[in-house]
């Protein structure tokens, strides 16, 4: 029972943190973008964004009214033993925290469009033998950017240039609707569903740090440079701050194919991780 209470408490914390506070890495890159912005309107937009983050934190108001569809990544350590339904507990706690913190419940039945009456948060549970206890990451995903997700199953003989062009086209399609400056999560390989999951997971990484894989780090840099010359800019007002970062994850794939997934996050990349030992 002690574990149950602890998990509820920490997950409640994570929900509030994710909704009211911009993660450090995102705030840092936004501020840098503001310092470097030359275009008048782009500067105005970034100024609004930074001011908004301050007010959200101070007033405990959601950073964005789209408080997202809660995506929850759960990592269970090697020593984990539970006497209760972990996923149900976490989902319920997140749902209650949304209510308690005046966050918009944006979930509806996909067809009737009315309140579903069941918990719709998306959970991913994985075992991680490198950790002890539990690690829970709450990632509320807004749909302005989620709607711009792209997946393409390329031929295995495709040129890397064609893959890059596909990613650039995805950014052009996302445009001002998806709230630039963006953070791009890109999944390469696996199956179609796995590529999409990798793309989403890539968004969880520290966006101020380069990829540990040097060839992927090069690709990330090249893509970021191309994206930032598209002249979309903050809120679509032009300038070279169209994306803050590009994060790529890859996984082996089949000899017959090459799935590429692009999951875009608006500048309000909200995420919070809590850990606890059992």
């Amino acid at each position: 029972m002690k574990n149950l209470k602890l998990i509820q408490e920490k997950v409640r914390q994570a929900t509030a943190t994710a909704s009211f506070q911009l993660p450090k890495d995102v705030a840092e890159l936004l501020k840098r973008g503001y310092r470097l912005a030359k275009d008048k309107r782009a500067r105005l937009a970034l100024g609004w964004i930074i001011e908004n983050a301050k007010i959200a934190r101070k007033e405990k108001l959601a950073l964005c009214q789209d408080t997202g569809l809660p995506v929850i990544f759960i990592e269970a350590g090697r020593d984990i033993r539970l006497s209760f339904d972990l996923i149900d507990t976490i989902k319920r706690t997140v749902e209650n925290s949304y209510k308690g913190n005046y966050l918009r419940n944006s979930l509806v039945d996909p067809l009737s469009r009315v309140k579903p009456g069941y918990q719709g948060a998306v959970t991913h549970l994985e075992f991680n033998s490198k950790i002890k206890g539990l690690r829970v990451t709450l990632f509320p995903k807004g749909f302005g950017s989620e709607n711009k997700t792209k997946l393409k199953m390329f031929n295995p003989t495709v040129r890397i240039r064609d893959i890059e062009n596909f990613i650039i086209d995805s950014v052009l399609d996302a445009g001002p609707e998806a709230c630039p400056p963006f953070i791009l999560g890109i999944g390469i390989g696996g199956t179609s569903d796995y590529a999409l999951l990798l793309a989403k997971k890539a968004l969880l990484e520290d966006i101020t740090k380069p990829n540990k894989d040097t060839s992927l780090a090069r690709l990330e840099r090249r893509l970021l440079k191309r994206i930032n010359s598209l002249n979309i800019g903050p809120m679509g007002f032009g300038g070279n701050a169209t994306a803050l970062a590009v994060k790529i994850r890859k996984s082996p794939t089949h000899i017959a194919g090459l799935p590429i997934a692009v999951n875009i996050s608006c500048w309000a990349l909200r995420r919070a991780t809590v850990e606890f030992k059992s």
Partner: peptide
Amino acid sequence: LAPSGCGAYLAL
């Protein structure tokens, strides 16, 4: 166009 993603700022 309203400042997108600036819901807290606009609330005031």
